[in-house]
Computed example of a mutant assay.
Amino acid sequence: MIGKTFIDLGICNADYKKLKSVIQWVFENKHEKNTDFELSTATGIQYYNTIIVPELNKDGSVSTVLSISRSITETVLAQKAMAASLEKYRKLLDGIVTALSAVVEVRDPYTSGHQNRVSKLATTMAIQLNLDEDAVETVRITGLLHDIGKMYVPTELLVKPTKLSPLEYEIIKIHSEAGYNILKSVDFTGPIAEIVYQHHERMDGSGYPRKLKAGEILIEARIISVADVVEAMMSHRPYRPAKTFDEALAEIENGAGTLYDQDCVQVCSNLFRNKGYQL
């Protein structure tokens, strides 16, 4: 290897310039810490390279460096394969979620598009609330599935053109727990089944089915509940016409802190009033 350059050893020209500049910087700055970066050969083999200064001279200068390279081609290929597999899984999951959401709409045609609109609004709210990427994705999927438990509700109640009786309303209320039971065995990355279970709970404990209060309710469920109420009020139903967005926002604003999470209400109202959001 004596007398050979890095190009002779197969390092591609662009990375040779990078390597040369790093070594020059090490010499000029009397840098004795390890410096790591990636290189690749002209044939496409990738390396993880470490520049090491064994020791400084007595005057603090550098006269010798070690350049240690180890191939990471297999690791990079494995990472790409894993990323492709993950993307395939996500597309499959999206397909299944969309199909399940469509099943509910077939049984309840009057609320067609409801879950999709709730999902979009709730996802936007989650982003505005600075939830992390995984939590935002959990909100998105839950929005698409939050009413899946209506599969257990008699169709004649879902499409009834008049107001429900107290008994009929109690039957409708089973959909939260039914949805939880449908989804609890699915290994989602987030607590989607639990959020579905909680999306009709209220901050003061007046919701259903478990009368949970404030801190007992997941933030994702608080987001879904606000988005659900706003979308439902702004959409036409057989037993009533659609409300205006002012009427829908007044409902959540009047219940902020008691029925609905204060921050969720504020974000939702801001989207419609100041940022031009539309369902």
Results as ranks from 00 to 15, higher is better:
Met1Leu: 09
Thr5Lys: 05
Thr5Phe: 01
Phe6Glu: 02
Phe6Trp: 06
Phe6Tyr: 08
Ile7Glu: 10
Asp8Leu: 06
Leu9Lys: 09
Gly10Leu: 04
Lys17Asn: 12
Ser21Gly: 07
Ser21Ala: 13
Val22Asp: 02
Trp25Ser: 13
Glu28Trp: 06
Glu28Leu: 08
Lys33Val: 02
Asn34Tyr: 08
Phe37Gln: 04
Phe37Gly: 02
Leu39Ser: 02
Thr50Met: 00
Asn57Tyr: 06
Gly60Glu: 05
Ser61Pro: 07
Ser61Gly: 11
Val62Tyr: 02
Ser63Leu: 10
Ser63Thr: 12
Ser63Lys: 10
Thr64Val: 01
Ser69Asn: 11
Ser69Thr: 07
Ser71Cys: 12
Glu74Asn: 11
Thr75Ser: 12
Thr75Met: 12
Ala78Val: 06
Gln79Phe: 11
Ala81Tyr: 10
Met82His: 14
Ala83Gln: 13
Lys88Gln: 13
Arg90Leu: 13
Lys91Arg: 14
Leu92Thr: 13
Leu93Arg: 07
Leu93Val: 11
Thr98Cys: 12
Thr98Asn: 14
Leu100Asn: 05
Ser101Pro: 01
Ser112Gly: 13
Asn116Ala: 15
Asn116Glu: 15
Ser119Cys: 04
Thr123Glu: 00
Ile127Arg: 09
Leu129Gly: 00
Asn130Gln: 14
Asp132Lys: 07
Asp132Cys: 10
Thr138Ser: 05
Leu145Gly: 01
His146Tyr: 04
Gly149Glu: 02
Met151Gln: 10
Met151Ala: 11
Val153Tyr: 01
Pro154Leu: 09
Thr155Tyr: 08
Glu156Asp: 15
Tyr169Met: 15
Tyr169Glu: 15
Glu170Val: 14
Ile171Trp: 04
Lys173Trp: 08
His175Cys: 06
Glu177Ala: 13
Gly179Trp: 01
Ile182Cys: 06
Leu183Gln: 02
Val186Pro: 04
Asp187Phe: 13
Phe188His: 02
Thr189Asn: 14
Ala193Lys: 04
Ala193Gln: 00
Glu194Cys: 09
Tyr197Met: 11
His199Met: 09
Met203Gly: 03
Lys211Cys: 14
Lys213Cys: 10
Ala214Gly: 14
Glu216Met: 11
Ile217Phe: 02
Arg222Tyr: 05
Ile223Asn: 02
Ile224Gly: 01
Ser225Pro: 02
Val229Cys: 07
Glu231Ile: 09
Met233Ser: 10
Ser235Val: 05
Pro238Cys: 08
Pro241Gln: 14
Asp246Ser: 13
Ala248Asp: 00
Leu249Val: 05
Glu253Ala: 08
Thr258Tyr: 07
Cys264Lys: 02
Gln266Ala: 12
Val267Ser: 01
Val267Cys: 05
Cys268Ser: 05
Ser269Trp: 04
Ser269Glu: 03
Gly276Cys: 07
Gln278Ile: 11
Gln278Gly: 10
Gln278Ser: 13
